[in-house]
Design a protein around this nucleic acid. Structure first.
Lengths: 152, 152
DNA sequence: GCTTTTTCTTGAATCGGTCAAGTATATGGA
DNA sequence: TCCATATACTTGACCGATTCAAGAAAAAGC
């Protein structure tokens, strides 16, 4: 028992990640975290629920949403909302990458950033990708709210 | 009757814009188009419905959606989907601008593009805006779909 | 172990938006 | 000017994604 089976490794890793993030370690959380991790990203809540169920058997959709929210708040998971699609989840890698979405098949692909910190508009994508448009949304605080926030 | 009243002007203009776009000229369409035009942008379907109703009296929400879809398809209106908000509509100005959304109050503001054609990441916003992050989504065709599209 | 606190389950509800069927109306031709 | 026909609007049901609420279950600390 000193060397756990190979199948236990990812679960032990998931438990460790949860513990490090200061979260309670539960079967649903480990399962969802594992599902997000080895999916390659961009899965929606319902699909992640299915994958998680394969690992631990039963899991309600509501719990899946709860877990995803918790993991996102803890910075372990990144959620992305793309117009016309349900919210997708992927492992948070803090690499500030963006997304390419195919208008025809809906497939999603990561797009690396040329610059480090700031998001860049020159996408690092193979030439075969036919980019038609880019939607850029900046998030932050408007002058009014910034003043209110710094005052408190 | 040769010189229409001042109040008729925007309506006549709306009618003209619809006609130019090859669309049937109807009261709902004129009203919604006027509502979008003089709103300064970023209103959702339900709010636009209210504004349109002030102009023509009655208008179903379904019709509002139909009209907005038609106007968008015709290139008269631009729709923007921002995570966590219902779809917003604004006059299509073909200027390829982007959006700033305040995390605190949810207000939306246009962000001009420094470059002409391509979307740019260096936002033209006053310094008082505290930009925390940017979500960039590229839309187009992936290699597979591009091949299929050009083949047909 | 036992207690406390957090999390999970179940089931209802909400929100933004679409589908479908029937009625009304804009437009082009007689 | 009126008619025919295609298109648009109204009403009402429906849907998918997500959240709310209440009670049962299970982690973590003592």
């Amino acid at each position: 028992m000193t060397t756990p089976g190979a199948a236990d490794e990812p679960m032990a890793l998931a438990a460790e990640r949860l513990r490090t993030a200061g979260m309670r370690v539960t079967a649903p959380r480990m399962a969802v975290l594992m599902a997000v991790s080895d999916s390659g990203g961009h899965l929606d809540a319902d699909t992640l629920r299915e994958r998680a169920q394969r690992i631990i058997g039963r899991l309600s959709l509501q719990a899946t949403y709860n877990v995803l929210r918790a993991l996102t708040d803890a910075g372990l998971v990144r959620s992305t909302q793309i117009a016309g699609h349900p919210t997708r989840y992927e492992t948070e890698r803090h690499d500030n990458h963006h997304h390419f979405v195919c208008r025809a098949c809906g497939s999603i692909r990561d797009v690396e950033c040329t610059v480090g910190a700031a998001p860049c508009i020159e996408p690092r994508l193979p030439e075969e990708y036919d980019i038609r448009e880019a939607a850029v949304t900046f998030w932050g605080l408007c002058p009014g709210c910034r003043a209110t926030a710094s005052a408190s």
